[in-house]
Each structure stands twice: as structure tokens, then as C-alpha cells.
């Protein structure tokens, strides 16, 4: 628990001081919205298109953070410290999941209002959407921390991480888009199949949380 807090605190402090990840993610999201505006040639979005644009943007912005989340560990020998110190992998894994989840929440606090401002006619669906996004963040953070630790020790790590991530994230995308689509529908939000999709997201988060918990130690030993 102590190690968990230390690692989490260290990463958040580093981020606050250097502002390496979150501003880049926010800028990326804003630019992507602009690209979608012209790519789709639409000035307002609703339903599945809105859900797709928002979720794809969040997902790709998350990849930026996921690529960076272990960089400091690698460059400054953090892995060795974790290996040498009596810290088990679970604490590191949990801390990294939390760091990623916090980054994503902060990103969404910026990106979602911006998205609503740019594309949505009404902000009515945003409150329940927050729940969906929270579950998505947890899934992205879990699988992101896992994949990032795999990728960071490989040669072409910037390439490997997205390559592994994208197929793994397909179920998240399916479930999140399924839940978000009726929420962002043109005629005001509806809760068609909302519970079902939340359950799928929860299942995903739990399963990969457990997988990460079970296998993470093996990624650290050397």
C-alpha cells in the first residue's frame, strides 16, 4: 500500500512538474476533433457518429499516455529500483493503472466539454456518459498498464504498444459505443441497453484487472 502511494505520488508530481502527458493528450484530442469535423464534413454530431468520434479520440489520446507511462521508469532505472526494493509487482501495476486512469479522467474533463461545445446540440446525455467514460478509463488504464509494461522492454516499443492495444480494446469500443450511442441520440438521451453495456465494461475491467494482477510479477522479474 505504501509502495503504491509512493509510486502514484511520484508519477503525479512528475507530471505536474513537467506537464509531459496531459497537455499533449488534450491538444491531440482537440486537433482530432477538428480533423473529424472536416473528415466527416459535419458541424454537429449525434448518436453513433458522436459516440464514435468521442470514443475514438479518447482511445487514441490514451495511446499517447500509455506509450509514456513507463518511459521515466525505463530511462531513469525505475524498474531496477522496483525490482531491488521489496515492492511487489501488484503495487506498481495498481499505481500505474491509477496514474493512467487519472490522466484519462483529466483529459476527458477537458475533451468532453470541448466536444459538447463543438458538436453537440444538447448536453443532456453527458451525466450518464460520465459513468460510461469512467468504466472505459478503467479498462483503458488496466490494459494500457499491462501492455505498456510488455512493450517497454521490447525493441520497437512505440510500435508494439498500439499494435497490441488496438485489438484488445475492440470490446471496450463496442460496449462503450453501444452505451453512448443512445445517450447522445438526437432526440435526447435514452437508456436503451445501458445496463447491458455497463455490465460488459465492468466484466472487461474486472477480467483484465485480475489478469494483470496475476501476471504482472512475471513482467518484472529478471
Amino acid at each position: 500500500m505504501n509502495a503504491f502511494r509512493t509510486i502514484l505520488g511520484k508519477d503525479l508530481r512528475t507530471e505536474l512538474r513537467t506537464l509531459e502527458s496531459i497537455p499533449a493528450m488534450a491538444l491531440f484530442a482537440a486537433t482530432t476533433f477538428v480533423l473529424f469535423r472536416f473528415g466527416l464534413d459535419r458541424t454537429s454530431l449525434e448518436g453513433s457518429l458522436a459516440a464514435g468520434v468521442l470514443l475514438a479520440t479518447v482511445l487514441f489520446a490514451a495511446i499517447l499516455a500509455i506509450n509514456r507511462v513507463f518511459v521515466s521508469e525505463r530511462e531513469q532505472g525505475g524498474f531496477d529500483v522496483v525490482r531491488l526494493a521489496p515492492v511487489d509487482g501488484t503495487a506498481l501495476f495498481a499505481a500505474k493503472v491509477c496514474v493512467l486512469a487519472i490522466y484519462l479522467v483529466v483529459l476527458e474533463l477537458i475533451a468532453v466539454p470541448l466536444f459538447a461545445l463543438l458538436f453537440l446540440d444538447s448536453a443532456a446525455g453527458l451525466a450518464p456518459l460520465a459513468l460510461v467514460l469512467a468504466m472505459v478509463d478503467l479498462g483503458l488504464a488496466t490494459i494500457g498498464a499491462l501492455v505498456s509494461s510488455i512493450a517497454i522492454n521490447s525493441r520497437a516499443r512505440d510500435l508494439i504498444a498500439p499494435l497490441l492495444l488496438l485489438p484488445l480494446l475492440v470490446p471496450v469500443m463496442i460496449a462503450a459505443a453501444g452505451a453512448a450511442e443512445p445517450l447522445l441520440a438526437a432526440g435526447g438521451p435514452s437508456y436503451d441497453g445501458f445496463g447491458k453495456w455497463i455490465a460488459v465494461l465492468a466484466l472487461y475491467d474486472v477480467v483484465f484487472g485480475l489478469v494483470g494482477y496475476a501476471v504482472y510479477d512475471f513482467l518484472l522479474e529478471d
Binding site: L146, I150, N153, R155, P171, Y204, V207, V211, A214, F218
Partner: peptide
């Protein structure tokens, strides 16, 4: 992409476990 043989084996196994868990989940979704 992983040079070290021993680590390669370990990471590949971690991937195989993760992907194995992914298969049923993906079919549900």
C-alpha cells in the same frame, strides 16, 4: 521485438494468457 530469450519467453506467455482471457470476452461483446 524482445531480444533477451528468457524475457521473450516470459512476455510471450503473459501475452498468451491475456489474449486467452480476451477470447471469450470478445465473443460476448
Amino acid at each position: 521485438a524482445i531480444e533477451d530469450r528468457e524475457r521473450q519467453a516470459r512476455y510471450a506467455s503473459v501475452f498468451a494468457v491475456t489474449a486467452g482471457a480476451f477470447v471469450p470476452l470478445n465473443f460476448i461483446a
